[in-house]
Nucleic acid binder design. Sequence first.
DNA 1: CACATATGTAGACGGTGACTACATTGGTGC
DNA 2: GCACCAATGTAGTCACCGTCTACATATGTG
Lengths: 188, 188
Amino acid sequence: MPTPYHHGSLRDSLLEAGRRQLLEEGVASLTLRGLAKRVGVSHSAPLRHFDDRDALLDAIAAAGFAELISELESAAGLSSLRARLTQYARAHARFALESGPLLELMFSVGPGGGAAEESAARFFALGGELLGERADRESGPLPYLLAATLEGIGSLVASGRLPVERVDEVVDEAVSMLLPAVEARLSS
Amino acid sequence: MPTPYHHGSLRDSLLEAGRRQLLEEGVASLTLRGLAKRVGVSHSAPLRHFDDRDALLDAIAAAGFAELISELESAAGLSSLRARLTQYARAHARFALESGPLLELMFSVGPGGGAAEESAARFFALGGELLGERADRESGPLPYLLAATLEGIGSLVASGRLPVERVDEVVDEAVSMLLPAVEARLSS
DNA sequence: CACATATGTAGACGGTGACTACATTGGTGC
DNA sequence: GCACCAATGTAGTCACCGTCTACATATGTG
């Protein structure tokens, strides 16, 4: 039989199809019914796996954070602080370039959300680690500033207002600006 | 007669009602029909003034940029560069705090848009002026970095991930970081 | 192998954007 | 003045969407 009654991995298929739809046609085009048709199930089948459309978006965003985090972690091994920061920032910018609408979704889902918010917390914690934040002292403004700068660059990239060929230049300038403050913080 | 056939200023009323709806209930709650009802016209009347829902959002975003720009211009008169930068950044952060969803809308409408994109261009030009950019030489990465940093902070503020009581601290740190690079650029 | 549960289907309902045809108004040229 | 026309608002309609409910089928556990 070509299409068994039970799909088998409908949840994953919906997440993947949703991700594709998001990246290709934008978040507005992402409808539960459209995804259902695309995956080959009835129009209400997605509701068995996601309470509503927002829950699906939340799950897609959570997966996006996981993906972003795994790319950012490529910076952890590098020896110098500058190299780590640069690699971290470049990975973030690259993600924005390749998955703009997804990044936009990830940062538009505010706190109070579900799974995405947990993943977001890990993302912010990762930035803190990069800056040498420790639990035994108060965190300064730097983690926020790092996150803001990267997210801002990502937003400009995703919206196309920052030309692709100038991304590296801006990222490098950002790192050069952040570095002194981070070094001061680390040596204190 | 209480309700004349012609509203008289329907376009403005829709913009204002749309702005209120956006700020109070979020962009998802903003529907043409809801606005029409709220303003007291028939469900299809808004289409006489806006081609579609996106056109309305675009117009609201354009008005938002005009508003933001007028607040940012309060920094132009200050004497020291640091004071100008600080005032500029604080005004931006305050706007994010008071009109988060509007700011989010303004920066989610990518280029290729209509009226909003013109206003956005003036916004970016204003940042360039603050940094002493001139038409007679190529612009460096600084204008982008300034815009990215402020937009990133604004996004964190609007989403609630940056606690309100820490906004000033982060803004000041951002200014302190940007300042040396800007001074170097200006004196060259 | 019975039966509870998870998963998928089919139909319905109200809300929404957008299109069309029609009604009313205000301004312009004569 | 006034005939005409473009601008503005109305009413009806259609397809699409999210979501709910009742029902069908598969799965796995005692």
